[in-house]
Design a protein around this nucleic acid. Structure first.
Lengths: 128, 128
DNA sequence: ATAGGGTTTCCAGTTACTGGAAGGTCAAGG
DNA sequence: CCTTGACCTTCCAGTAACTGGAAACCCTAT
């Protein structure tokens, strides 16, 4: 099948599939006589795997690792788990950072009357 | 004062200050005879404002808006509040997205025995 | 033959810096 | 006066992961 169909089936934009190929995340696709990329169901499966992993927030580098573990029948599940754990840790840290921002911002916003007068606790906070 | 001292006082790296100047977020600094950038206390105040706004997660574009509101004595606090509210909304959306990922990942990780055997619910999830 | 859609490559833009190289400047010490 | 080390300058490249768009080729149906 052509890249458009592979894109539809995997959920990844065609542009992204080409990008993944160019950067070496996936092997170069086969080509038709006319030079069109050609994908098998197995290829689509791999692309869907990547789509799912990306949706879970794994970096492309993590995806490469996960993909190679997936394809390695002698893998240790501990290796997979370690990648996931680290990823969770990063997510949790990010959430905490965002919660902190949100909390501060909510306080400031609640203190700002938000009318046509210029005095504003938000700006006052930023200024000190 | 030179850029190094302005950097120390504002908390922004010198590289970042130059970058802000180059991209027009701040006005070009004055120069000494030798071509060194020269900063006043007022400049440092502006830089600190930006540092604080960035630490609260505002985009550089938002910072430009906030800065111009800050410098506009005829501003309406409603305008400031609107920028902050939108920013909070984006943060909240991001937190929800991350919480969703975290939740899914925690479930998968808890199901993975994490030893030297290859079977792994994490990979199985990604594969479907 | 032509119209439309799909495909190709390549280049540029996004966000907000950060690292590093090559070279000029300044103040202190000898 | 000279050197040394810390600053400063500009400029170029790289980061993460795409996304948009241009110019041109291909395929199918009417």
């Amino acid at each position: 099948m052509n890249i458009g169909e592979a894109a539809k089936k995997s959920g990844l934009p065609a542009k992204t599939i080409r990008y993944y190929e160019e950067t070496g995340l996936i092997a170069p696709a086969g080509r038709t006589a006319a030079g069109y990329r050609s994908y098998s169901e197995a290829d689509v499966h791999t692309l869907s795997f990547l789509k799912r992993a990306r949706d879970l927030g794994f970096s492309v580098k993590d995806c490469a690792v996960l993909l190679s573990l997936y394809q390695d029948k002698n893998r240790s599940s501990a290796d997979v788990k370690a990648v996931a754990r680290q990823h969770i840790d990063r997510i949790v840290a990010k959430i905490e950072e965002l919660e902190q921002m949100r909390s501060t911002l909510e306080t400031l916003v609640s203190q700002c009357h938000g009318d046509d007068r210029p005095d504003c606790p938000i700006l006052e906070d930023l200024a000190h």
